[in-house]
Structure formats: structure tokens, C-alpha cells
Design a protein around this nucleic acid. Structure first.
Length: 418
DNA sequence: CCAACACAATGAGCCACAACATACC
DNA sequence: TCGGTATGTTGTGGCTCATTGTGTT
């Protein structure tokens, strides 16, 4: 499974694309992901050389194998003698890198058993890199604007190569927008954020002033990061903010769709037509790591480019995203590692059944809380609510005054008057 | 292993009408 | 420019039903 390229079915698969849920050989990876701007944004990483089905997160320098988190746990669990193995962080990349570029990211890539063996992969070096001319995520590392001082990461206390952490999580870095893109957050950066959440037009991480505004903000609910937002609606943030100010949000989203049932609008905090709602609500998405929500539930692109250890240490939950992330993690008892570091597809590590049980309980509590929060609804017009609260109904529908009803809110017991 | 089925979860739509927004005189 | 009137639009909650996801046989 996954050993053969899902695309050509011929060559050995070497990289994993989460967006496509596909294992690809290097050649097909380039071909597939050079098709268009969107596909270029897919984040890929090496394929786990043990299970050949999951994206690798770390590379064991001792065994010289790339491992997904699960295989890493199994192979390097605390109970095993290999637990002391030095492991190097593996990072995601996007765009259409050449072989040399890949090797610059993964210094060991040339050591991979199959690397360069096939004609398919040898073609890589001959391919042009169109996105280079358009300001891709493959800009030189020095163009990065968010690197930490050291530019290194540590796994088990071992510093990894700087170059290997250059393109961490560049999956969502908007190659389409070279003027503002921030290439690859440093894996070990104090400012490490999932780049998908990076906001254009913001000068950097913004500390939210009102956590309440973010209680309802989840990336799975609000999967429109700013790049998507602009792509979809063809308006800039400034423009959309202006529309909010002018009460023109309907023109953006369609007023009908903003009514009950669509929580995004109100979850944005814009229920009162304030532009602050949008701006503030978007800020956490810009400045902070994805909420646990987005990782737990989003089906599209929750690429965990950071190894669990980093996710735990660098993706700061506390007091930044409010309930939806830190609060939930704490409340439900799940560590951020459980929620963030472990891809949803990973089966529980067998080394501890108790850990697995705790995890299940934590996830359950988290989901329950999320469910309760998700349906939290803000009422724009209290007067209308007051009226609706006392109106009689038939099968939940309002009835004309004086007509027979089967439900009277004023009488808690079900009323029937025919 | 796959299809069929049951069940749970989720979201859209419906209803009446006061409140609100807009256009016109 | 302001006030009054007419017309159109919006939002409110409980329920039903269709859809989707998950688990079991």
C-alpha cells in the first residue's frame, strides 16, 4: 500500500501529498503539482519508509529511515532500545522543486534507496521550475521573513539542518502572491505558525484582545483563509472590511446564507455588522497556529508539517485562541500533542493502551464541547427573538394568529388546540 | 472483502409577522 | 430638506425531512 506511485502505478512512491491523499513518485509529484497554482500549494513530504502509507515526520539518522509519527512511536517508543535514536525533523514542501532543491531541503534525500534510480525520477532535474519566476515557495531561504534566530529545530535534543527546515509547511504559502508571501515557517521558530493561517496585510502575529471573539472561530468552520477568501470572492481584505463597515456583507456571502444554519457569519463575530468582527476574528487565524479543531476535523488540508514535539512546544495554545484551541485542549484533558501532533489517520500507538483510552475520551469530550459551541447562536434582534419565543407553532412552523397550534412556547407542556 | 442495512448526526427549509430598509411623493 | 406613506426584505425558533457518516450484519 502506497509503495507504488498512485499516479503512474509504475515507479516507487516517495512523497506523500495529503491534499490528494496520494503517494507519488518524484516525477509524478512534479507533474501533478505543476498543473496549476492550487495544486502547487499542496503540501507534500516524504513517505514513511516503514509503513509506506503515511507522511513521514521525522528521519531517524541512526537507521536512516523516514518515519511517520506512528512508526516513530512504535520504533522509538520509550520502552524500546531505539528510543535514544537521534531523529531529524522532516518538513513539508510545496511547489515543484527540482531534485537539487529537494536535496537542499532534505540533505539526505540523495541517500534514499530509490532516489535517482528510476528514469522517472531522473527526469526531475530536467524539468523547468515555472513557479520560480512567479515567486514561489521555493524562493531562497534567505527570503524567509519569519525565521528564528537559530533557524534550527531540535528533536530529542538533536539540531537538524537548517536547510531541512526551510520550507516547513509551505503548503499554503500563496505562490500566487509573491509580494506578500511568507515562505516556510521555521520548524523551530518561536513564531511557528501553520502558514495556511498567515494573513496578508498583517504585519505579524496579533495578540487578540478579546478572546470571546475567537471562541467560535474554527478553521473547519471558517476555512477561508485570506488567500482563499480573495481567490473566491475577488476582493481584498480591505475591500471586504469596507463592505462590513457599510453593511454590505450580504453582497459578499449572500444574506440568505448567513441566516440560521450557517454559523460562519456569526462565528466571525460580525453579527452586529461590525467590521471589527471580521478583522479580529481573522487575526487568530493569522497569528496563531491552527486550532485543534482544524486539525481534528478538517478533511481538506490539515497538514501537520510540524513534528509532534514541535507542535506541542511551538504551537502556542494558551490564551491565544481561547476556547477553541487551548481551552478545549485543557478542558477535555487532551494534550496539544494529542490533538495537534497526531494526524487523525494515525491509529493509536500500541505502546500504551491507557494512553489510547485517554485519547479517545479526550477526543470525545472535545467533540462534545465543540458541538455545543458550534450551535451557539447570537441573536441580532432581541425583539424578534422575543416574539418568536412566544409564537405558537404547528410542527415547528409559525402559524397565523388565531389558527390551531400544537406547540405553545408559553406553555412548557405540549399544547394541542384544534 | 463487499454490499446492504440500520442508526445517528447534521443541516436546510419551512412557517408568520414585526421590525427594518428603501423608494417615492 | 423633512415627514409621511407604500412596498419590499430580514430575522426569529421548533420541527421535519433529506443527506451524510458510521457501525453492524
Amino acid at each position: 500500500m502506497g509503495y507504488i506511485c498512485d499516479f503512474c502505478g509504475d515507479q516507487r512512491s516517495m512523497v506523500y501529498c495529503r491534499s490528494d491523499a496520494a503517494c507519488l513518485c518524484l516525477s509524478c509529484d512534479r507533474n501533478v503539482h505543476s498543473a496549476n497554482a492550487l495544486s502547487r500549494r499542496h503540501s507534500r513530504t516524504l513517505l514513511c519508509e516503514r509503513c509506506n502509507s503515511q507522511p513521514a515526520l521525522v528521519r531517524c539518522t541512526e537507521e536512516r529511515v523516514s518515519l511517520c509519527q506512528n512508526c516513530d512511536w512504535m520504533g522509538h517508543g520509550t520502552s524500546t532500545s531505539a528510543s535514544a535514536h537521534k531523529r531529524q525533523t522532516l518538513n513539508c514542501y510545496s511547489g515543484c522543486p527540482s531534485a537539487s532543491e529537494l536535496s537542499s531541503i532534505w540533505s539526505f534525500v540523495l541517500d534514499l534507496p530509490a532516489a535517482g534510480e528510476s528514469a522517472c525520477e531522473q527526469e526531475m532535474g530536467l524539468m523547468s521550475i515555472a513557479e520560480n519566476s512567479t515567486g514561489s515557495a521555493w524562493s531562497p531561504p534567505e527570503s524567509n521573513t519569519k525565521q528564528n534566530a537559530s533557524g534550527t529545530v531540535e528533536v530529542n535534543g538533536v539540531r537538524s539542518d537548517d536547510k531541512s527546515s526551510v520550507l516547513v509547511g509551505s503548503s499554503s504559502v500563496p505562490e500566487l502572491n509573491p509580494a506578500t508571501h511568507v515562505v516556510g515557517q521555521q520548524a523551530g521558530s518561536e513564531n511557528a505558525t501553520l502558514p495556511k493561517l498567515f494573513c496578508h496585510g498583517t504585519k505579524g502575529p496579533v495578540i487578540p484582545e478579546d478572546d470571546d471573539l475567537y471562541d467560535d472561530f474554527d478553521m473547519d468552520e471558517m476555512d477561508l483563509n485570506l488567500e482563499n477568501y480573495e481567490e473566491l470572492f475577488g476582493v481584498s481584505l480591505n475591500h471586504s472590511e469596507e463592505l462590513f463597515k457599510n453593511g454590505g456583507i450580504d453582497s459578499l456571502f449572500g444574506a440568505k446564507n448567513m441566516s440560521k444554519g450557517n454559523s460562519n457569519y456569526q462565528d466571525l463575530g460580525a453579527a452586529e455588522g461590525s467590521s471589527v468582527g471580521l478583522v479580529n476574528a481573522l487575526q487568530p487565524a493569522c497569528s496563531n497556529a491552527a486550532s485543534a479543531d482544524s486539525v481534528m476535523s478538517t478533511k481538506t488540508d490539515p497538514i501537520i508539517c510540524f513534528p509532534a514535539k514541535q507542535a506541542q512546544s511551538n504551537l502556542s495554545f494558551s490564551g491565544v485562541t481561547g476556547e477553541s484551541s487551548a481551552g478545549d485542549c485543557q478542558d477535555c484533558g487532551a494534550s496539544s500533542m494529542l490533538l495537534m501532533g497526531e494526524p487523525p489517520w494515525c491509529p493509536p500507538a500500541p505502546e500504551s493502551s491507557m494512553q489510547s483510552a485517554n485519547r479517545s475520551n479526550a477526543v470525545m469530550r472535545y467533540k462534545e464541547k465543540k458541538k455545543a459551541r458550534k450551535f451557539d447562536k447570537r441573536v441580532r434582534y432581541a425583539s424578534r427573538k422575543a416574539r418568536a419565543d412566544v409564537r405558537k407553532r404547528v410542527k415547528g412552523r409559525f402559524i397565523k394568529a388565531g389558527e390551531a397550534y400544537d406547540y405553545d412556547p408559553l406553555n412548557q407542556a405540549r399544547t394541542r388546540s384544534y
